[in-house]
């Protein structure tokens, strides 16, 4: 299980890196799906099978299909690849990479003070849904209102 965690983590990092340097948008989307699926494996190893399944269905399934539909509707074609290559000069990456590395260094220095080996206990659907429909039922209702607002907004915005 431990090797599976590190393997999936490495695949997630590599494929996420491939997403941000990719010029072909459909290839980037496929790399993003790979990254999300390996994060789902990490969730499973960390004892959260319900979250892993939802990650695969909702993130790698529904949200990525939404992206694919929009890419299809935009119908960007071949000329955007050359355009992307022109935009993606190496010097563009320098300043953001330094800033992100500084942020990551701060995060790592804070995280480095924590050291805790955990025995992974599986927290299944029963416990999560018991919480969702018990103390967090108001949050579930608010989430449904948020989704309704997103639906109305997307319909209104994408309308001709």
């Amino acid at each position: 299980m431990t090797t599976l965690f590190y393997l999936a983590g490495a695949i997630a990092v590599i494929s996420t890196f491939a997403v941000i340097v990719q010029t072909n948008i459909v290839h980037a989307l496929l790399y993003l799906i790979l990254s999300l699926l390996s994060v789902a494996v990490v969730f499973y190893v960390l004892g959260a099978p319900f979250a892993a399944v939802l990650e695969a269905i909702v993130y790698a399934g529904a949200i990525m299909v939404l992206f694919l539909f929009v890419i299809m509707m935009l119908n960007l074609g071949q000329h955007t690849r050359e355009q992307e290559r022109g935009w993606l000069a190496a010097r563009v990456f320098i300043a953001p990479a330094i800033m992100a590395a500084l942020l990551l260094g701060q995060l790592l220095s804070v995280i480095g003070q924590v050291s805790h080996d955990v025995e992974i206990t599986r927290v299944g659907v029963l416990e999560v849904s018991g919480l969702l429909f018990g103390p967090y039922v108001l949050a579930v209702e608010l989430a449904s209102i948020l989704l309704l607002a997103g639906l109305v907004a997307a319909y209104h915005l994408a309308k001709k």
């Binding site: 983590g9 996420t16 080996d117 025995e119 992974i120």
Partner: peptide, 20 residues
């Protein structure tokens, strides 16, 4: 079930966040 050091999971989350 084997044990996993918890900071490694947090480091993975941090790296993914920085890449994003």
């Amino acid at each position: 079930m084997e044990s996993i050091p918890i900071e490694h999971g947090l480091i993975l989350a941090g790296i993914l966040f920085a890449l994003g």
